[in-house]
Design a protein around this nucleic acid. Sequence first.
DNA 1: GTAAACCCTCAAGTAACTTGAGAGTCAAGA
DNA 2: TCTTGACTCTCAAGTTACTTGAGGGTTTAC
Lengths: 276, 276
Amino acid sequence: MIRIGEFSKMAQVSVPTLRYYDQMGLLKPIEVDRFSGYRYYSVNQLPRLHRILALKGLGFSLEQIGEALDDGLTPEQMRGMLKLRHAQLSQELAEMQSQLLQVEMRLQQIEREDTAYDVILKPVEPLLIASVRAILPTHSAVGQLFKEVYEGIGPYVDEALGPCPGAGGTTLVLWYDTEFKDRDVDGAAAFMVRCRVPDRGRMRVEVLPAVTVASAIHHGSYDTIGEAHEAVIRWVDAHEYRIAGPDREINLYNKPPIRRDDPTYITEIQYPVEKI
Amino acid sequence: MIRIGEFSKMAQVSVPTLRYYDQMGLLKPIEVDRFSGYRYYSVNQLPRLHRILALKGLGFSLEQIGEALDDGLTPEQMRGMLKLRHAQLSQELAEMQSQLLQVEMRLQQIEREDTAYDVILKPVEPLLIASVRAILPTHSAVGQLFKEVYEGIGPYVDEALGPCPGAGGTTLVLWYDTEFKDRDVDGAAAFMVRCRVPDRGRMRVEVLPAVTVASAIHHGSYDTIGEAHEAVIRWVDAHEYRIAGPDREINLYNKPPIRRDDPTYITEIQYPVEKI
DNA sequence: GTAAACCCTCAAGTAACTTGAGAGTCAAGA
DNA sequence: TCTTGACTCTCAAGTTACTTGAGGGTTTAC
């Protein structure tokens, strides 16, 4: 019969924690005084407390621990729990390592005094687009394809692009080359559309699949957009991802891109990626 | 001017999260309708949101992110934050690896169908003890030293051991050998005492320093206590700790140890350790 | 008898959201 | 003009494993 304070010292566990374990039903005192409410423990409970602490050390939640202790689980079940936990831990470990890498990259970026682009990973949903793809003399020539896309949509403009709500009508550019080129580049101009309309001329309607992308946002003239691309590509390399599809330049500014050097433009660069 | 739903889709961030960021002052809409309360955002806010997500990806708290964004910090400050975070991450990573190791060990233990001892790491406070140390023919001979300790305390028994509360009077055994021995072992029998009393004969009063110990609880006869020792030592080896001082067998059962094979005994095995 | 040390039961706070209830707003179609 | 459905609002509660604090009873030692 030991009072809570001494039991707490024996096991190096705080008193409120013991009370909490009582409340949770993890470790009930052998006796509770009916009048004073004092909790009384026994040394026989130390092994149980010890086991709780050991399982907690393995990273299990109190709920899991409670179940494990109450169900008097077989070694087989214990093995299952541990295997599961092992898998979880491995994954968290990998995430952490990648986070560490990211921090290191960021530091390097500062050392190099680079413009710091914020590259993040995110999932994007499938996207229905109407596009015209062509081999272009230079990157800047892609602008001229938008007119062709628009005309390709022709009579369906209202249904396909619609009014503001929904992403219908947003423009984007796709680049298909897998290596860097300066001329004769393979690109496409596209509109997001809200419904499938018939192909016409060089205009094709297709679905860009759901993918995970590494994304950065470029603020300002198109002339310096190369830096943003470079930043994302470096990020992808460093994090053991590989590029898995044409990259996208999404025009987040609502006006169509007319002057290439408008400093108020906002463009999102997305590279579909997959883990190596 | 974009409503919250569309902004949420653009950035792949949930609507409640955006509202939460607003509430936290991390990302305020450019306008809030005075009557409807509707939040309106602008594409110009995407870079800020992007930066928030990037910093969150590095593991910073929203509070830290808020400060960083509002203080328009210098690259130097950013470097400081990142260095700090780097250190934190490295440490967490190490902890996780050790946890993973622990889980693996536990699995192995099950494969071997070992009795599972629950080994945990915990800090213990400095301990004042009265002890008699000697070279003993066998481990079991340590019991005979307790009488000598008790007599050494002699007239101070009441102050030193006192009544129940406080750990005074608890008995423990210390083993000083750094390698395993079967005979001529260097051990001590000790009482925890509540005040310093004069040495007498072979009885010495000393302070066991505060250390971190790897600890297991053995339930039952002393004759099988070797298994518990083995379990702790294996744990210490596997976790890249080294033994840093004599190990302790603490008698948690209140009666003095008279019959070695009493199956109701409870003993805690503690090995002081330090990280390699 | 009293003071110190100990114990009790609430309740609130932590981080970063998610979920749900209940109610108001807006755009498009009938 | 009305309705429908999609969208939005606020507010409260839940999540984990505790810690901290308020306010008040109990034991023990002198």
